[in-house]
Design a protein around this nucleic acid. Structure first.
Lengths: 113, 113
DNA sequence: CACACATATTAATAATTGCTAATATGATAC
DNA sequence: GTATCATATTAGCAATTATTAATATGTGTG
């Protein structure tokens, strides 16, 4: 795989690497939702959610469709749902270790946020 | 899933969301390697690679073992390899769209790097 | 012990990211 | 057309991240 491809792939995966975006994905996983439904769901800020939705869409992770004044968002396809499931399954295996590392201030193990 | 869990999960996934780390993972996917082997492989900077390795380790994605003065790194387990494969498969589906978005300067679709 | 090599850590910096508040766009209903 | 509701965009800011150069640690060898 060429260097450029790694960059694009990293960008794609970065779509999944934020707690708010993960919550959005969970929220729309089984059923498409409007922006305001998602905002309610996450008790979040409308502008913030809107930006994360644009991000997810730009990463090819979700799609949207308009119906009147509402815009419905959903996962792009079944493969994305499957990827989420597998991420979850693998994550559960290492969760404790990752959480522990996060607490450890001496060892500066990269992504903190 | 609780809020904290989303944060930890996001951190775990963030381990995969960088082009250098993806290259490292590709490099050690089939065979454990020493730091200098990886540095050679990626034609990278030793300090930089070392930090990314610490990051991947902190995220529970890779493990290491020492043999004399060398330290060998490898994927944590087969599930991580499987996750990488599925990420790749799903990514290929949306690659063109993500790449296109990256070029589009008007639409500021989140993660750029 | 001194030297060479392998790897890790630190510090400084530039770039990216996520958040909030404010404003803009677009659609419907009256 | 104007008011209202849903969503998007913008700008500014605080925090995080990736990178590099320099230095430190640790391991084997003579």
């Amino acid at each position: 795989m060429g260097k450029t491809s790694y960059e694009v792939k990293a960008k794609f995966i970065r779509g999944f690497s934020d707690k708010t975006r993960l919550q959005i994905l969970e929220s729309i996983k089984n059923k498409e939702k409007t922006v305001s439904q998602i905002v309610d769901d996450l008790k979040g800020n409308q502008s913030n959610i809107s930006q994360h939705l644009a991000c997810l869409k730009g990463c090819g992770i979700i799609i949207s469709r308009q119906e009147g004044k509402y815009i419905y968002y959903s996962l792009r396809n079944a493969e994305i749902a499957q990827l989420l499931d597998i991420m979850e399954a693998v994550f559960v295996q290492v969760e404790e270790e990752v959480a522990a590392c996060e607490r450890n201030d001496e060892l500066d193990c990269c992504p903190k946020q």
